[in-house]
Design a protein around this nucleic acid. Structure first.
Lengths: 325, 325
DNA sequence: TTGAAAGCGCTACCAT
DNA sequence: ATGGTAGCGCTTTCAA
């Protein structure tokens, strides 16, 4: 390993000078700088981030905690975060929590132990002590809280929009799928949908689902049509489930959207690939990731007048599982 | 921040003793240990990984370099790696390269700068100098090389299997989609398929695709049916494209699998959700990730007699885009 | 069994 | 403009 000492020796200067040249602070003579740069070049030196981090008590690392990168919504968030953060020279320490408190605590702890400069978290366990004691900038992503900066989309409006769309397009017996109770955004959109449905002269039923996993999606879809065989409009808990419902509907011989309309949530990339393509409520996942990163960077720079709650717009993407006007 | 000094003071011992107690090496008296543990508990101390890492010249971090987590095949790999690694106390530094050499180099460099203990990489740029100069354990994932330990699946056999399946199931005018030229596994499966097709009395054509992105998948599918409208068997470059082909085929009124059979590659989770469900060649992505992690851990522990090339089996998953016998 | 102290690679203060 | 050096929090010799 080539260290700052080697560079100093090679350039015939002190380590202090090398350090100053490296970090562009303090005075460094023009030709001294040249010598240093030449030495760096020659030895192919690159500074040890760990030593820097120890001294500064801050690394160039950011901790990102997500529920499960295997769920197609989250990779988009992650890429948004990564792309934006890397422009500012930060790297990502990634953890999947599986919505499990212990895992989450462990990751938060290792983030801290590694001197991360900030944390971006999609957590449902904000009440936990560990977050209160955190001395670091924290941005919530896809989650809301009074107490912390957050980037999220308007779930309530999303739910309303989904319900309104189905109502306007003539669904008469709507089934509303409710996502896992412990996932906050799922509840928001559920509430939004309930609200809209309640104000309409329309029959509707609610089907509770307890997970977002691929494996169970088809199960929920089956259950849906068993319990509500004559439903003509489904508000799926997310796009995965929406796609599973398309599958199941087609399988039992229903026409989409003639017999049953379906609306998803998220607008994951594969929603445009199903047949028929899935109408859905779009969350701008990639942008949400970027916004969270930008917000975190502002927080780190301690900028003034930071907008700490960033609500991203939600949008209806009309594709082919809903009827044309 | 509470440091080892604070603990030492609280426990009335030296920092050396605390360190020994913490790491279970050297002698520590029974009641001394108790006092130390009590102090740790009381102060809620957890050791600074950065300081450790500086001294040891090794962190508990592993660098993971993937092409693009947004492609559904890779999150599976990543989770496999993460789950296995975290059992051994390692955490993940994640980078997406987008198959771009510069980004890749930057990530490898920051991995090194952060004292990672090892690297797992899905790269197509192994020839690059930076890999040769690497002093760290490196495991290739989903990639092959003479020179480095690697975990990959048998792409050639996968390609053969795909072609053989279509042939056996009676396809007469097969279209073989070729993945991006710079992606090694894509070429392997292409070669395997070509091999099998060449040995059969069968007409086939090749369609080159230059990306795996969602956005373009539908475009390739369209192109496929424009160029080869009477193809009755398609070997898709991966499941995304396979799903897009299902979409397109249905759209132009073809029956699946009567008019056209389709076989994908990867077996991503959503392949079981399309309608009809996609027959495909399965790569055990999650397990590949785990194996890579295990292999890396062995390398780190410098175990003897390590099997350095781990070829994972590939498997036909018969679903509904191929005919039943 | 315990403690003192050197040193991991770097930055920043204080001299010069 | 440059160099000497303390110190970031930890581990590990070496002595006691």
């Amino acid at each position: 390993m080539v260290t700052i000492k080697d560079v100093a020796r090679e350039a015939g200067v002190s380590v202090a000078t090398v350090s100053r040249a490296l970090n562009d602070n303090g005075y460094v003579g023009v030709d001294t700088r040249k010598k240093v740069m030449a030495a760096i070049e020659k030895l192919n030196y690159s500074p040890n981030e760990v030593a820097r981090s120890l001294y500064k008590r801050k690394s160039r690392l950011i901790g990102l905690l997500l529920p499960d990168i295997t769920n197609p919504f989250f990779p988009q968030l992650a890429r948004g975060v990564e792309d934006e953060l890397s422009r500012a020279g930060f790297r990502l320490l990634l953890g999947n929590s599986d919505e499990n408190v212990e895992k989450e605590m462990e990751y938060i702890q290792t983030f801290v132990q590694n001197n991360v400069t900030g944390i971006i978290s999609a957590t449902n366990h904000l009440d936990d002590q560990i977050y209160n004691e955190l001395k670091l900038p924290l941005v919530l992503l896809d989650r809301i809280s009074e107490d912390y900066p957050a980037v999220y989309s308007d779930g309530r409006e999303g739910g309303r929009l989904a319900a309104r769309t189905l109502i306007e397009k003539g669904a008469k017996r709507i089934t509303l799928m409710k996502g896992p109770a412990h996932v906050r955004p799922a509840q928001d959109r559920f509430q939004g949908a309930i609200e809209e449905l309640s104000h309409a002269d329309i029959d509707f039923s609610v089907l509770s689902t307890t997970s977002y996993s691929f494996e169970e999606a088809l199960g929920w879809a089956k259950e849906l049509f068993e319990q509500f065989p004559d439903t003509d409009g489904v508000i799926a808990s997310n796009d995965i489930v929406g796609i599973a419902i398309i599958h199941e509907a087609l399988k039992i011989g229903k026409q989409i959207p003639e017999d049953v309309q379906i609306i998803g949530y998220d607008d994951i990339p594969q929603s445009g690939l199903s047949y028929p393509t899935l109408s859905t409520i779009r969350q701008p996942a990639y942008d949400m990731g970027r916004q969270a990163a930008q917000l975190l960077i502002k927080l780190i720079k301690k900028e003034q007048h930071i907008e700490c709650k960033i609500q991203m717009p939600v949008e209806l993407v009309e594709r082919n599982t809903t009827r044309k006007k």
